[in-house]
Design a binder for these strands. Structure first.
Lengths: 234, 234
DNA sequence: AAATTAATGTGTCGTAAGTACATATTTACT
DNA sequence: AGTAAATATGTACTTACGACACATTAATTT
């Protein structure tokens, strides 16, 4: 049954337009952002008739001469202009009828970025940030992809220093805690949270304070250099 | 950039044999087995010239009308005759040059099965079980796939009741511990291991003892029904 | 039948991590 | 000067983890 895989390039050419190559491969990016104390995701309005009025994740077909991981970076770059962004593969989705126009298998990646910091030109793009809590239905199987990606993010958040990609360079412990709370969907005890973060030793005290607050300002921190922009290995 | 994805079926037909469909999709199964106190993996001799003398994982191209998950079951079925087997998706591998004959993106699954129990007809198939410790090099990027899958298995083993698929229906705690030790590659303390397993509450005491031993026999257990053959959700 | 062999089965103590919880302190604002 | 609203911090309790030793059981040998 491994036959086809074992053909030489010349032979591959002959069959390449037959059955086995009637599958397209796409990459879909679940781009998480954080703003206004809410976790958001970047969506685009679907212009397929089948999904009229629905939003979808940012995706595109993988080009024949393009690594999977490169494809996800390209999509992010094309959509947001950013190329220094955390990206991680989540899962491959390959149900037969997941795409109405034909057989398309998609590899989902998730990505984290600081909405405030990276001012994207979203307006003329039909691209918008949507609060996770408000998303009920998406085009294709994108709701399932989103759910799977969020679950993955939740699993990683206490183990790996990834969430800092969602925050500005300098942040207070309160901001960090609020971020954790919106990702996990639960409230956390302030003292215990600080203890837990402090043993991880991810943060650098930069000797600065919050400003422009109408109450006591907190200290500002940033991630230690070694944990910045941790990209995937794949 | 989403253009192609948004075409209707008729239009897809027109371009389907052009650029975007020159990617094939395969599934590779990392089939773990356990025998003789060693973790093994089922491999087949590669018959590509490029990989002469090397072994590879069991894989095949995904058919256009076949779900990804179904494809992995089919491969397992075709190769081993088994269809009631634990399978879980691990990762998609998609470097440009990972396959010498053309562009093939592969989705890796891992699978667990009890070697002794399922007597496969391996001989006339060029299929063989290989001890993990002896595998240095495999065809394609299959060593990387194997390593990634093993790491995933190691991560899951203490969290999820999966390893029982590697054991016969009835097993002793010693056997279970030896299995954990070969998966994790470390020695475990007997008393602490038993405590840990006992709080998980995965096991059913079946009131039987080991037999045919030249020393004190241990109690036999089996997995509770609710944890048997936990298949993936996708 | 007694002794030997080779394993099973079990509990405690010390340490580390997790959880619940309250008070003094700092800044801006009035 | 007083008030408001947040920050910063420590302790006592409980739960999980790791190291570690001895009595028991069944089969085999003498």
């Amino acid at each position: 049954m491994n036959k086809v895989l074992q053909l030489k390039t010349a032979e591959i050419e002959k069959i390449s337009h037959l059955d086995y190559f009637n599958i397209a491969v796409s990459v879909d990016c679940v781009i998480f952002g954080y703003d206004d104390k809410e976790l958001k995701v970047l969506l685009i309005k679907s212009d397929l008739e089948e999904f009229e009025g629905l939003y979808s994740l940012l995706g595109d077909l993988v080009k024949p001469d393009e690594d999977l991981d490169k494809a996800s970076y390209r999509i992010l770059k094309e959509r947001t202009g950013l190329d220094d962004v955390y990206l991680e593969q989540v899962h491959a989705f390959g149900s037969i009828n997941r795409h109405p126009s034909g057989r398309v298998i998609t590899i989902a990646y998730y990505s984290l970025l600081d909405i405030k910091n990276h001012k994207l030109q979203l307006s003329h793009n039909e691209l918008h940030w949507h609060s996770l809590s408000e998303i009920k239905k998406l085009a294709f199987d994108h709701k399932k992809i989103l759910d799977t990606s969020l679950r993955r993010l939740q699993e990683q958040v206490m183990e790996q220093p990834v969430v800092f990609n969602l925050l500005p360079e300098k942040f207070s412990l309160r901001e960090l805690q609020e971020l954790y709370e919106s990702i996990l969907g639960i409230e956390l005890d302030r003292r215990n949270f600080r203890k837990k973060i402090s043993v991880k030793d991810w943060l650098q005290d930069i000797n600065e304070m919050e400003t422009n607050l109408s109450h006591r300002p907190g200290k500002l921190y940033s991630v230690k250099k070694q944990y910045q922009r941790k990209l995937q290995s794949s």
